[in-house]
Design a protein around this nucleic acid. Structure first.
Length: 195
DNA sequence: TTGTGTTTTATTGCCTCC
DNA sequence: GGAGGCAATAAAACACAA
């Protein structure tokens, strides 16, 4: 736009467009977000506005439209992120449960190798089951369950296994067992989803 | 009525394209 | 160099609670 046009337009008193004018501009915008000069002149004649007002309206409309689109995209991304965060947390718990099962089965295997059918968990052994393969503490929920067993001292493996199994999520929850291996291999202290 | 937040219209300055 | 687009912003108009 030329400087002269800008200056001549400068002192005009601001007035809101009528509903009909807006409606017509909106209709045009749906098909032509960047109308050519010919179409702008057509709107000038049709709506009784100045050419500059038409041009500015489309400019502002494009800006509003763009920011609205960005808002919508953000909303979709946030929704996806929230869903993934829930899935991640479920998988993390599932992984912890499986790690307990692994520890129990390892101990059972040791017992069978070394003799007999005398497999029992003692109070002193249970805290070790609360550490994952990296030595990190398991989540509070599972720890609470095993703490209960610690009080019982000689809880047997069958009962432990049942508890571990009851912690497993059902398939209806929307995740599978195959995906848990990566959970403790992400490296570093920071969680990968942090922004 | 008035203070305040939001929306809409207009301006400015800079950039790109021809 | 002019035309037109965009981002940032000003300012008028409007909505609305207190």
């Amino acid at each position: 736009m030329s400087i002269n046009v800008k200056k001549s337009f400068r002192n005009s008193r601001k007035k809101r467009f009528s509903d009909d004018q807006i409606k017509s501009l909106e209709m045009t915008f749906k098909t032509e977000a960047r109308p050519e000069l010919r179409l702008k002149h057509h709107l000038v004649n049709k709506l009784g506005l100045q050419l500059q007002q038409i041009a500015i309206w489309f400019q502002n409309k494009r800006a509003r439209s763009k920011s609205k689109q960005i808002e919508q995209e953000y909303s979709v991304l946030k929704s996806n992120y929230d869903h993934l965060a829930l899935q991640f947390e479920a998988l993390r718990k599932e992984n912890q449960t499986l790690l307990i099962q692994v520890q129990i089965l390892r101990k059972k295997a040791d017992c069978e190798e070394n003799d007999k059918n005398t497999f029992k968990l003692t109070a002193s052994e249970i805290p070790r089951l609360l550490l994952d393969i990296n030595g990190n503490e398991l989540c509070g929920e599972l720890k609470g369950r095993v703490d209960y067993l610690e009080e019982e001292a000689d809880a047997d493996v069958l009962y432990m296994a049942q508890i571990a199994e009851s912690s497993l999520p059902s398939p209806e929850d929307g995740y599978s067992l195959e995906s848990c291996n990566f959970l403790y291999n992400t490296g570093g202290g920071a969680q990968w989803w942090d922004f």
